[in-house]
Write a protein that binds this DNA or RNA. Structure first.
Length: 409
RNA sequence: GCCGCCAUCGUCUAGUGGCCUAGGACGUCGGAUUCUCAUUCCGAAAAUCGCGGGUUCAACUCCCGCUGGCGGUACCA
């Protein structure tokens, strides 16, 4: 039976690296019909940041990788850790000093395990491990103790965590041994590096999934991109849904090297997803739920056409606003105003009551050629924008009045 | 310093001894389509597989050393 857990500490909002650990847990659990449990490691009272648990749950909920079962809070299990600490003391493995309880790792011992990332054997000599605290003077356990006790009691089969934990795994192994417990399998994920090749952290602006949500990224993109940072199913596909990833997920396909987060590819992938989901309109409504102007557009009769026209021009949902904004990007120069007047007269003369696409295009071509005016200029004069949704598309969506208004302004 | 992990185009990666004169994707550059911008479609440049030794008929793939990067070295996780 596969049982995994995501065990974050509520010391701030989880950046995307932590969320990726949750995702790998989820993928592995689903793939093996196992259970995925959430455990809050709130044992550091000084570093607690309120609101971080709520944010954490919001992230998992939004991404659709929710754990099952009850959430375990370590702060509610203090008696348990004390009991096991006492056991260690009684066995002569731990000792008390300055109000805290320490464990001394025997130097002659060797601790080794087969890490499932890369399927390699890792071992440490006991002498590399300094005495470590299991119970702090404030009565709270340290990660080392609480983690081992809980993973055992919760019957966790596989421990997924960042590779920064590799060097303390010997401590954990010693604890398992001291209690007479069977240790779980370890899956130490390579850590994500920033563009500067340093571990992704808040210091250099590592963002959380919620930050990316605010910036207009789709949950599909985040899931897809996070998984591919350190995992690759081997095919040539770049776009994979959560369900597809579950089907393809294998521990052997987790990479051993540290990946670097590439913003450009992330953006590209978001564009791919924006173009392929079929409820883009709903996503936009949610995203712009506090923006009346955009909401009006999305609830108008022509919403479908507008979203369709904007679709291929968006990298993030944030781009939508500028695409549907009707205000001119800038003032026209006097010379441009003159050309606009001329163009309007020309079109009025040339076109019938209703501007048909074919005729409009032909007329613009003729005007462009006869007056040596670039289409780029014509585009600006008729749409008020330097770039964006096409003239013909706007003509279809809003009708000629919109274009005329731009020519007159 | 010590301990550990890692090492294929700028980046994400395929590659498990011969299929590799190293494949794909992003990005970059060029071109086609085109009413702007995108999208889409073609094409190019881009890795002497970190370096040096082995093993083998044969090494990107196995072994050793070196170098480099990263991580750990808290009464933080």
């Amino acid at each position: 039976m596969v049982r995994v857990r995501y065990a974050p500490s509520p010391t701030g909002i989880q950046h995307i690296g932590g969320t990726r650990t949750a995702l790998f847990n989820y993928l592995f659990a689903k793939k093996n019909n196992g259970e995925f449990i959430l455990r809050i490691e709130d044992t550091d009272q000084k570093r607690l940041v309120k609101g971080s648990i709520e944010a954490l749950l919001e992230i998992l909920e939004w991404l659709g990788i929710k754990p099952t079962g009850e959430i375990i809070y370590q702060s509610q299990r203090l008696e348990l850790y004390k009991k096991y600490t006492k056991e260690l003391v009684d066995k002569g493995i731990a000792y008390e000093s300055q109000g805290a309880v320490f464990v001394k790792v025997p130097g002659e011992k060797t601790f080794s395990w087969t890490d499932l990332v890369g399927n390699k054997k890792i071992s440490f000599g006991g002498k590399t491990q300094e005495d470590f605290v299991v119970l702090k003077s404030d009565g709270f356990p340290t990660y080392h103790l609480a983690n081992v006790v809980d993973d055992h009691l919760m019957e966790i089969s596989h421990v997924f965590r960042g590779e920064e934990w590799i060097s303390s795994t010997p401590k954990h192994l010693y604890l398992y041994e001291s209690f007479g417990w069977e240790p779980p399998q370890f899956v130490h994920l390579p850590v994500i590096l920033g563009a500067d090749k340093k571990k992704l952290s808040k210091r250099h602006g590592a963002k959380s999934a919620l930050d990316y949500k605010k910036e207009g990224y789709l949950k599909e993109t985040i899931l897809n991109y996070m998984a591919f940072l350190g995992w690759n199913p081997g095919g040539k596909r770049e776009q994979l849904s959560l369900d597809e990833m579950v089907k393809l997920f294998k521990l052997e396909d987790i990479n051993t090297a540290n990946p670097i987060f590439d913003q450009a590819k992330f953006e590209w992938l978001n564009g791919v997803w924006i173009r392929s989901i079929n409820d883009l309109d709903k996503r936009l409504e949610e995203f712009y739920s506090n923006d009346k102007d955009v909401l009006d557009v999305l609830r108008s009769e022509k919403a479908k056409e507008i979203v369709n026209a904007a679709k291929s021009r968006m990298k993030t949902l944030l781009d939508f606003k500028a695409l549907v904004d009707k205000n001119p990007a800038r003032e026209k120069t006097d010379k441009e105003k003159e050309i606009a007047r001329k163009l309007l007269n020309f079109l009025n003369e040339k076109m019938g009551e209703k501007w048909k696409d074919e005729e409009l295009l032909a007329a613009m071509r003729q005007f462009s050629k006869e007056n040596d005016i670039s289409f780029k200029t014509i585009f600006f004069l008729m749409t008020g924008k330097e770039s964006g949704i096409g003239i013909l598309e706007l003509n279809q969506i809003y009708g000629k009045d919109h274009l005329i208004k731009n020519l007159q302004s």
